[in-house]
C-alpha cells in the first residue's frame, strides 16, 4: 500500500493575526455605519431646526396661526396650509382607505383563484410604483376635466352645503384629494392585506363551521381580529399623504387660503415648500424652514403613532397562535 503524501489534514484552521485584524476593522466599520444612521437622522432634524430658529424667534406661535404668506411684506403664517394638508389627507384617507381595505379583502379572503389573486397583488404594487409627478400630470389632464361636470352639478343643486359652495375653477381640493387617495391606496391595501392574512385559519374555519356566511366571517371575525393592523395601515398611509408633494403641488391650486369647499383651491405645507423654495430669498427661506419643521413634527407624530399601533397589532396576533 503506497501511502499518500500527507496533505493538510483539514481545511479548517484558526484565523491568522491579519484576519483577526481585518475582522475587527470590518466589524468596526459596520458599527460606524449603523451609528451614522442615527447621526444622519439627528443631523437632518438639527439642520432643518437650526435654519428655522431665526424665523421661530421672529414669528413664534403666530406662524402657526397666521393666515398670510407674503414674502414682500415679510409676513408669514401657515394656518391655511396646515388645514389644507390635514383636509386633503383626510379626504384621501377616507376614499383611499375604503378602497384599499376592499382590495385587501378581495386579495385575502379567497374571492379570486390564486393565479388571479397573485396577478392583482402585483398590479396593486405597480400602482405604487408610478411616480407621483406622473399622477400629477394625469390629474391635470384626466381628473380635473372628469370631475368638472359632477362638481358643477353638485354646486348647482347642493350649493348650500359648505362642501360645495364654490365652483371648480380647475385645480382644487377635490382633484388633489382624489389623486392623493390613489396614492395612499396601495399602502393601505398592502399592509391591511398582511394583517388579514395573519388572521389564523382556525378562526375563519371555526366561523364557517358555525354556519356563518363569507361576509359574516369577514365582518365578524377577520376584520375585528385584523383591526389593529388595518388601523395601523391607515395611520401610516395618513403619514404618507401628509408628506406627499408633487400631486398636490400640481393639483391643489396653491392658493394660500383655506375653505371647506371641495372645489376651492387651497394649499398644503409640502406644496408650499415645493413652490416657494426654488426662488425664495433669505428671509423667506427661514420661514420655509419653519414650515418644514412644522411638517416634520406632524408627520413624525403620525408615523410614530402608526408604528406603535403596528407593533401592538403584531404582538396581539402572536397571542392568537
Amino acid at each position: 500500500m503506497s501511502s499518500a503524501p500527507p496533505r493538510a489534514v483539514t481545511i479548517s484552521r484558526p484565523p491568522s493575526a491579519r484576519e483577526i485584524f481585518v475582522n475587527r476593522a470590518f466589524r468596526g466599520l459596520t458599527h460606524v455605519f449603523a451609528w451614522a444612521t442615527i447621526v444622519l437622522l439627528a443631523y437632518i432634524l438639527f439642520e432643518i431646526g437650526s435654519l428655522a430658529v431665526p424665523a421661530m424667534n421672529e414669528y413664534g406661535a403666530d406662524f402657526v396661526t397666521g393666515t398670510t404668506w407674503d414674502a414682500n411684506r415679510e409676513e408669514f403664517g401657515v394656518l391655511p396650509e396646515i388645514m389644507g394638508t390635514l383636509y386633503t389627507s383626510l379626504i384621501a384617507l377616507v376614499i383611499g382607505g375604503a378602497l384599499g381595505v376592499a382590495v385587501a379583502i378581495v386579495l385575502s379572503q379567497g374571492f379570486l383563484p390564486p393565479v388571479l389573486e397573485h396577478l392583482m397583488k402585483n398590479i396593486v404594487e405597480l400602482l405604487a410604483a408610478i411616480p407621483s409627478v406622473v399622477y400629477g400630470l394625469w390629474g391635470i389632464f384626466v381628473v380635473i376635466p372628469t370631475v368638472r361636470g359632477p362638481a358643477e352639478w353638485l354646486h348647482e343643486h347642493l350649493g348650500f352645503l359648505p362642501f360645495f359652495d364654490t365652483r371648480l375653477s380647475g385645480p382644487g381640493i377635490l382633484p388633489a384629494s382624489l389623486v392623493l387617495s390613489i396614492m395612499v391606496l396601495p399602502t393601505v391595501a398592502a399592509i391591511s392585506r398582511e394583517a388579514m392574512v395573519a388572521v389564523p385559519h382556525k378562526l375563519r374555519e371555526a366561523a364557517f363551521g358555525l354556519g356563518a356566511t363569507r361576509w359574516e366571517t369577514i365582518l365578524g371575525v377577520v376584520l375585528p381580529t385584523a383591526s389593529a393592523g388595518i388601523f395601523g395601515a391607515v395611520v401610516l398611509a395618513f403619514g404618507r399623504a401628509l408628506g406627499e408633494t408633487m400631486a398636490l403641488a400640481m393639483l391643489v391650486g396653491n392658493a394660500n387660503v383655506f375653505g371647506w369647499s371641495l372645489f376651492s383651491p387651497g394649499n398644503t405645507l409640502a406644496s408650499l415648500l415645493a413652490n416657494h423654495f426654488p426662488e425664495a430669498g433669505r428671509v423667506e427661506v427661514g420661514a420655509l424652514m419653519y414650515a418644514a419643521l412644522v411638517l416634520t413634527a406632524i408627520t413624525l407624530i403620525v408615523n410614530v403613532i402608526g408604528s406603535l399601533i403596528m407593533i401592538r397589532a403584531s404582538s396581539k396576533m402572536q397571542g392568537l397562535r
Partner: peptide, 16 residues
C-alpha cells in the same frame, strides 16, 4: 431611525 427615515416626506430630504 431607519424607520423614521422611511416615513420622512421626500420633500424634507430636499429641504435638508
Amino acid at each position: 431611525s431607519a424607520k423614521v427615515l422611511t416615513g420622512m416626506p421626500s420633500i424634507l430630504t430636499g429641504v435638508f
